[in-house]
């Protein structure tokens, strides 16, 4: 019974992982790729690890898998935030069909204020 639940969780995680990687290939610029890949791959990997917990039960493996889930949920958004901020400061533009870029306007405004 628990193995069946674990297998279903692992298959759901694989679907999310696959869609995240498909977004990494299909979407047009860095920020959109970060959107799809961070969200989907984080949840997909956490579901796979949860499936491993159901396969093994609560023992040495299960506790480590739960710690790993907690750790990925904490660190993955932080890494995405760091990468997006760094690539914006390094000057990579948004996709040409973007609606607005308030961050670029504000940064250029502050740079002009420093110069004058």
């Amino acid at each position: 019974m628990t193995e069946t639940i674990g297998f279903i969780l692992i298959v759901c995680g694989l679907i999310f992982d696959f869609s995240g990687c498909l977004g990494l290939v299909r979407l047009p610029d860095v920020y959109n790729r970060l959107q799809s890949s961070t969200k989907c791959v984080t949840l997909g990997t956490c579901l796979i690890l949860l499936g491993a917990v159901f396969y093994n039960g609560i023992n040495a493996v299960g506790i480590k898998a739960i710690l790993c889930i907690w750790f990925i949920f904490m660190t993955s958004p932080t890494a995405a935030h760091a990468i997006s901020r760094a690539s914006h400061k390094a000057g990579y533009k948004l996709w040409k069909g973007s609606a607005c870029d308030k961050y670029l306007e504000d940064r250029q405004g502050s740079l002009k204020k420093e110069d004058s």
């Binding site: 674990g6 692992i10 995680g13 992982d17 990687c21 791959v41 984080t42 997909g44 990997t45 796979i48 690890l49 499936g51 491993a52 396969y55 093994n56 493996v61 898998a65 790993c68 990925i72 993955s76």
Partner: peptide, 13 residues
Amino acid sequence: GIIIVGFCGIFSA
């Protein structure tokens, strides 16, 4: 890197 963590999960299962 995160996908390889998923690999390790499947191998441990």
